[in-house]
Amino acid sequence: MMAYIVRRALYAIPILIGVNLLTFVLFFVVNSPDDMARMHLGAKRVTDEAIQQWKAERGYDKPLAWNVQAKGIEKLTDTIFFDKSVRLFAFDFGQSDSGRNIGHDISQRMWPSLAIAVPIMLVGLTINISFSLMLAFFRGTYLDFWGVVLCVAMMSISALFYIIGGQVLLGKLLNLFPISGYDTGIHAWRFLILPVVIGIVSGIGAGSRWYRTLFLEEINKDFVRTARAKGLSEQAVLFGHVLRNALIPILTGVVVVIPTLFMGSLLLESFFGIPGLGSYTIDAISRQDFAIVRAMVFLGAVLYILGLLLTDISYTLVDPRVRLN
């Protein structure tokens, strides 16, 4: 079992190298640093000196991957590839294009992101499981039918409308919560409630319908018939057998996203002005700060792979068929 997990962990290395190469190609080969500089400096008739200076300030003035002028090992290390891409492996994200320390920013901003994402995940999971379990219990009845229709309708609404609708209705018209902003420490909750509620509600449609399919799939299995043949009540069958088995795909589906919770929610954070990593990313995109986008791409990939690894581990913990083989 350990060997399997170690193997999976080792497999992450070539994947990360792949991601790294991909981002390098995307950011430095498709468009040269000169193009970037020209784009940033804006003016049509920008001078070569200005471009050179812009590049030098950000360390983009080196050769891409092979420094002919350097000596020895520096032929490799004194390049953009080494400075900007290889260093990511050490989680050395460097400076943003506007000169800030990205690593420091990330460590500051991940907490507000978590403060939103974790409650959305936990409360959302509880609500979705309860709701879909109810639909599964009443399967085939009108309650189930209209419940599914409600789910489909809810998942047909763009997340943007949930946010805008929530802000206008709960924030502006009813004046229950502040529309946007953030506060440090314990006072943050006032600003968190609205985005969290919206995050949960917008996820109910897709989540509940998906879990309902999982439950119904288990309900049709032979061992559920065995459980009924024992004389168990429908509730006991549902909680003792169906839920137990369906929780395996549900939990492992949740585990895979746990690490990426750090990345925050792009939309919620930017709408509500919460200084998390999501709004950090959005701001970087709109300011066209490539250094930050590059760092976030790499960080996201690392977290996703970590999620896959955690999924493998959680499978071995939850499912005796995997654990005992």
Partner: peptide, 27 residues
């Protein structure tokens, strides 16, 4: 139905064709 549950598995037991799938794999 409630009383029938007492009979199922009580006075009438049943075994099925496929022992491979008829038991709950995680219990």
């Amino acid at each position: 139905e409630v009383a029938m549950r007492g009979e199922r598995g009580g006075s009438i037991g049943m075994i099925f064709q496929e022992p491979m799938t008829s038991l709950n794999p995680v219990m």
